[in-house]
Design a protein around this nucleic acid. Structure first.
Length: 562
RNA sequence: GUGCCCGUAGCUCAGUUGGAUAGAGCAUCAGCCUUCUAAGCUGAGGGUCACUGGUUCGAACCCAGUCGGGCACGCCA
């Protein structure tokens, strides 16, 4: 529809002598009395044509080429808006198309033939997932679903590191707890992992091996045992939320040297060196981000200074930025056209360095999109609970799912814009289980299922494609309003996918549910004259289809009874 | 101090990328079930869109500055 309007306006513009390919903005007016769609093109042109915008609007309208009957009438209003009113026939025909397309309604082919990689969760296996991680996981999973709906071939990836200092501390923490179980009294350092899960893992080892591991002959035994346990629990938690990954990328891959071949990390250094972006100083290897536009301000002098970034520490170990760069290169090599990274606000300073390096190496860095989500503040009875895996008082994602269920958990994480801090009151979420916002949407779906069941039982209704034409009977205000809302679904997905904001899809589905509930209250279905009843049943079925398709993308269930 | 994010109704937040009278949920108040699910619908009250300037036909949205909150600023990841 939008395309039809735009091409029509372009034709009209040509006819009145405005010849350019400017973007024509079409929007849905806030107030229904201003029609179903409107454009501000006349006001945009007013300045350069030096004419009254209303006059320009009149000129355009006079030349609009709509020969078919999709647009019933066109009006000029306000300062020069051109408002379009769709015909009922156009709207009801489009609803028929929803029923015909079924599960594929809303899907698009704009990403067809393109490969997208979405990286999310990517927590190192040092402990159970926290509530904060859950938000990124849910957002990533849904963004992947959105891109899939846009036609992309999507790979979901989890990037992790099972080496390094953090993992050593993990192994040592488990070992200490284990030795305690073996009856040895010892101090447990503050900077070790304090969580109860450490004790649980130690207990498991003790039950399995008794005190036979006391001497810790294999230095990595505790670390590896703990890693396997924790990874399993992370996957289990993700599974409860319907989050899955197609591939797990181990950071160690980037360090591996096969038969004296340089590692991927080595190659990044060598290539950057060739390009003159490497400097060796103080025993470390630096990326000269000073040449790539990185600046900061000196605290004392308040002058802007260019700064460099360490890639390899003086002890010979790469800093995390080097493997990050190498990792991204594997994404390009694997042929991805779009790479989305979902991570928390604490990584906000990291990715610009990576992008700078990629650009310097000749990669198109605009193919990388970063979706930063702000933190989740968890409160209990109004008091903020701070999260820290190390401290062990973390509010665990699993506990949250136990409390409010998977649907509500997913929904809460997505219902706020990802740039906003999410205020998740655990007590409230528990209590709210009956008037939780997710139920507003699901209730609409369940209601439709109820109506259809009654229609089947009382009048032997079964949906038949040959009867879809009865939708043309629809005429009531609430019916048409609902129908028009349903038609916006493909655009809602597109906007949500492009902005990487699942929340925009939720807002749209809220409109659908609201429009349906209003329709339900005003328009009886079962018991009405047959043609009316059926037209309303088909409208309801189309609504159910849109809700169902939307829920699938959001990863929440579509209950038939509530 | 520097960078990013946020500041909109009593509370939690939307606001279609600069449009028409700024919206929803919760909370408060007043209505709607002998008929398909009242987890719903209708209405009322509630606003200096943090503040000050600027840009223009037009600003919650863009620019500059100020105030307040969060996060990050390491040869940790």
């Amino acid at each position: 529809m939008k395309d039809l309007l735009i091409s029509g306006i372009q034709t009209a513009l040509r006819d009145i002598g405005v010849n350019d390919t400017r973007e024509i903005h079409i929007e849905k007016p806030a107030d229904e009395k201003f029609g179903d769609a409107s454009t501000n093109i006349a006001m945009v042109l007013a300045k350069e044509l030096k004419k009254n915008p209303r006059q320009i609007a009149a000129d355009i309208v006079a030349k609009l080429p709509f020969r078919n009957d999709a647009v019933e009438r066109t009006e000029i209003a306000g300062a020069g808006f051109i408002n379009f009113y769709f015909s009922n026939a156009f709207v009801t025909n489009a609803v028929q198309a929803i029923l015909e397309q079924g599960e594929s309604f809303g899907r698009s082919s704009v990403g067809a033939g393109k490969k997208a990689l979405v990286e999310y969760v990517s927590a190192n296996p040092t402990g159970p997932l926290t509530v904060g991680r859950g938000r990124g996981g849910v957002l990533g999973d849904t963004i992947a679903n959105l891109l899939d709906a846009q036609g992309y071939s999507v790979t979901r990836e989890y990037y992790f590191n099972n080496a390094g200092r953090q993992m050593r501390i993990l192994g040592d923490s488990v070992k200490l707890r284990y030795l305690e179980l073996c009856g040895e009294k010892m101090d447990f350092p503050d900077d070790y992992y304090q969580g109860n899960y450490i004790k649980d893992i130690a207990q498991k080892i003790f039950e399995q091996f008794g005190d036979s591991k006391k001497e810790a002959a294999a230095p990595y035994f505790f670390k590896e045992f703990a890693e396997a346990e924790i990874f399993e629990s992370i996957k289990q938690t993700l599974h409860r939320l319907g989050i899955r990954h197609d591939s797990f990328f181990n950071e160690l891959e980037l360090y591996r040297r096969d038969c004296d071949e340089p590692s991927r990390n080595d190659r990044v250094i060598a290539e950057l060196d060739n390009l003159g972006y490497i400097e060796r100083k103080d025993g470390a290897i630096w990326l000269k981000t000073s040449l790539l536009g990185k600046k900061t301000v000196n605290k004392e002098t308040k002058e802007e200074v260019a700064v460099d970034t360490v890639l390899v520490k003086s002890n010979g170990e790469p800093s995390y930025r080097l493997p990050d760069i190498a990792y991204h290169i594997t994404k390009y090599e694997r042929g991805f056209d779009l790479m989305v990274n979902v991570f928390g606000a604490d990584h906000i300073d990291e990715y610009p360095d990576v992008l700078r390096a990629l650009k310097a190496l000749g990669y198109d860095e605009t193919r990388v999109k970063v979706a930063i989500n702000q933190f989740v503040t968890t409160t209990v009875n109004g008091e903020v609970v701070k999260m820290s895996t190390r401290k062990g008082n973390a509010d665990l994602l699993d506990a949250l799912i136990d409390d409010v269920g998977a649907d509500a958990t997913r929904f809460f994480f997505m219902m706020r814009s990802k740039e906003s801090h999410l205020n998740f009151d655990l007590e409230l979420a528990k209590k709210q289980s009956s008037d939780n916002p997710v139920f507003y949407l699901q209730y609409a779906h369940a209601r439709i299922c109820g109506i259809v069941r009654v229609a089947e039982d009382t009048s032997g209704f079964t949906a038949k494609a040959s009867e879809y034409g009865l939708l043309s009977v629809l005429a009531a205000k609430e019916e048409l309003e609902l129908a028009k809302t349903l038609l916006r679904f493909p655009e809602a997905i597109e906007v949500a996918a492009e902005s990487l904001e699942p929340q925009k899809l939720i807002n749209y589905l809220n409109d659908v549910a609201a429009a349906f509930h209003k329709f339900y209250v005003e328009c009886r279905i079962v018991g009405e004259e047959e043609r009316v009843m059926k037209s309303r049943l088909y409208l309801s079925l189309a609504t159910r289809q849109v809700l169902k398709n939307g829920f699938k993308i959001l990863g929440i269930s579509a209950p038939e009874k509530m």
